[in-house]
Design a protein around this nucleic acid. Structure first.
Lengths: 120, 120
DNA sequence: TCTCTGTCTTGACGGTTATCGAATCAAGGA
DNA sequence: TCCTTGATTCGATAACCGTCAAGACAGAGA
């Protein structure tokens, strides 16, 4: 399970873009995260993992919910992991995944528009 | 300027995914938005447009900030527009773009993790 | 009308990505 | 030790995407 992981700490620094435009470097970092979210299968995989809160999800519970085959699920989980959005651990026969909230937070904050619509 | 635009209203319906996993249909819709954000040039373009708040930005003010050529800027602006994240209008010689906050909001809310980290 | 400037579209090229079958690896149990 | 099950990796293929040069279009001004 050796992968090149995105440095999450570098992302935890982002005011809403309605307040301040991104630098080129910040855009490269953050776009990596959004790109990982830009596939329907990956986005739903992440949501199924995240919906367990801090708990974990077994891959075996994910695969059945999708039309795509096992290797494709593995591929998408790897992309999410390389983006630093999730992590995993093998315990016995099964592999468990969980979400990394500190990686999601900057992405959410960047898109926050509450400064434009104060009463919405 | 006739394009197929994503229906924004269909997106304005999304609780954080830490509370509830996405349906397949919702994932397809939302992934379209994230996919548009998944390129460094596009993300920075959007941030430069959004940073003006409700005001508009002339394309001529965007082009100089990037290494890529005019057609590439046009292409990325079109992708952002087809995703429903921005809109534009021509006035005289110049074309002005502005952000659509109601399209950004659901994406931000979906990634909100405050329910997991109450005091962060 | 012609010309100039700003923006977009077209067409093409090279690189990337999603997907799957087959093979591989990891762990448990017979 | 062998077999079975869960998950990943490998290799190949088809589709997609970012980029640019060249050309087209829109509007302003002479």
């Amino acid at each position: 399970m050796e992968l090149e992981l995105t440095d999450v700490s570098a992302l935890a620094c982002c005011p809403p873009m309605v307040d301040e435009a991104l630098t080129e470097a910040a855009a490269v970092d953050l776009a990596r995260g959004f790109k990982a979210l830009g596939d329907p299968v990956r986005l739903r995989l992440l949501s199924m993992i995240a919906a367990r809160g801090g708990n974990e999800v077994c891959v075996c519970d994910l695969t059945d919910a999708f039309a795509v085959k096992g290797p494709t699920i593995s591929h998408h989980l790897r992309v999410l992991r390389e983006a630093g959005l999730i992590d995993c651990e093998r315990r016995g026969t099964w592999v468990y995944y969980w979400v990394i909230p500190s990686a999601l937070a900057p992405l959410s904050q960047l898109l926050d528009t509450s400064a434009l619509t104060p009463t919405a």
